[in-house]
């Protein structure tokens, strides 16, 4: 902003300078140690954890994209089921917990705490 010595750009500018300096120092330290450019965590080499983490992230993205359209209840049961299966729960436990947990969260948040969880396609049967 003109005429102002310490305007809104001042603070982010200082942060940027700091990050640039620290970044340069870290790169230098990395070069000195001859560290690899990129390293994967150990679990990435094992199939089950890799699939489980991928499912967790995919489930969260799916919730963000689908919750408004499908509603909390359907999306909730679905992603819980996907997650529990990916982590190795049996079908019986998965079915039971997915439904019960969703219902409990519905009551705790929608009823008691009055959070407007989306109903989506179930709008007509909302209670």
């Amino acid at each position: 902003m003109p005429g102002q010595k310490f305007g809104p750009a001042w603070f982010p500018g200082l942060i940027a300078i700091g990050l640039a300096i620290c970044g340069a120092l870290l790169v230098r330290a990395g070069l000195r140690e001859r560290a690899p450019l990129f390293a994967m965590p150990q679990w990435m080499q094992r199939q089950r954890p890799r699939r489980a983490v991928a499912m967790v992230l995919a489930g969260l993205v799916a919730y963000i994209l689908l919750a408004d359209a499908l509603g909390f209840h359907i999306t909730g049961v679905l992603i819980l089921a996907v997650w529990m299966r990916a982590l190795g729960a049996s079908w019986r436990v998965t079915a039971l917990v997915a439904v019960v947990a969703t219902v409990v969260i519905h009551f705790a948040f929608y009823r008691v705490l009055r959070v407007p969880l989306p109903w989506g396609v179930l709008e007509r049967w909302a209670f």
Binding site: V56, G59, L60, Y63, F72, G76, I79, L80, W83, M84, L87, G88, A89, V93, V97, A101, T102, I105, F109, V115, L117
Partner: peptide, 13 residues
């Protein structure tokens, strides 16, 4: 395998 998914859904809500 049950605990983590339920906590995660709780985090989402």
């Amino acid at each position: 395998e049950v605990l983590m998914p339920v906590i995660l859904l709780f985090c989402v809500v």
